[in-house]
Simulated scan of single mutants.
Amino acid sequence: MAICDTVLGKGKSMRALTVIAAVVLGIMPPVGQAGESCTEDAMIVFDGSGSMAEMGFNKIGVPRISEARQALHDVLPRIASIRRLGLVIYGPGGDRTCRNTELRFGPQWDAAPRITAEVDALLPVGGTPLTEGVRLAAETLEYRSEPGAIVLITDGDETCGGEPCQLAAELAADGADLTVHVIGFKVRSSHFSWEDKAESTVVSVARCLADRTGGQYLSAETVEDLVDALQVTLGCQIYGQMSVRPRKLQ
């Protein structure tokens, strides 16, 4: 324990011992050496709101959710073999406006098929309660006592009255070691026009969740950008070093 506390810090040592024990006992998918596994669980918070059904500037091409599905199918099989992943979705269900945040499942090994199946089955609809989605993911990770990571994938701002920056302060103050990463996927200004198309990519209000918890805010405009962002934020030190990082807004 003393060695683990020195190398990983007291907050992470128990999680590391759990991972190593799982490898030894054969209850975790083999991934090579134990050092190639992430020691912290992660939750994906996925935006399934109505705006994810929208297409590009010229209203041709494919909906945003189709591109997001493609990115998840690409990257998750690699990530899920080294990290326990869970899923929160907001959008479908409920009253089709804001009471639509759902924990699909908590962190588990080899979660890629289950995550992609859940996202593939989504019919984007409803508002964007991203604050409640992140809060639910944090509670699932038992963030007050356990380290962990959340990756929020969203194409818009909070539309359901939540206050992401207030939540960010709470997570930073009360969390054992929780990091929230935010991927802004094709986030657009509500005042888009063809004249200011070049300036239409904006920063989501959710950026403060990343800033206050030591995470990253990454802007993604293409499937390739989104794949890179997922690798950087979900892949610990392993896959995060293997790709060119997408544009990080300063």
Rank of each mutant, 00 (worst) to 15 (best):
G61K: 13
V62G: 03
V62R: 15
P63D: 09
I65C: 10
I65T: 04
S66I: 14
A71F: 01
L72W: 09
H73G: 10
D74Q: 06
L76T: 09
R78W: 14
R83K: 15
L85C: 11
L87T: 13
I89S: 03
I89K: 07
Y90W: 05
G94Q: 08
D95A: 10
T97N: 15
R99G: 11
R99V: 01
R99P: 05
E102M: 09
L103H: 09
L103K: 07
F105M: 02
P107G: 12
W109G: 11
D110K: 12
R114T: 12
I115W: 08
I115T: 04
A117K: 15
A117F: 04
A117D: 13
A117N: 14
A117W: 08
E118T: 15
E118N: 14
L123W: 06
P124R: 08
V125T: 14
G126F: 02
R135Q: 13
L136T: 09
A137Y: 09
A138C: 07
R144F: 01
S145E: 12
E146W: 07
G148S: 02
I150F: 00
I150Y: 00
I150L: 00
D157S: 09
E158I: 13
C160I: 10
G161E: 02
G161F: 03
G162A: 11
C165D: 12
A169M: 08
A173G: 04
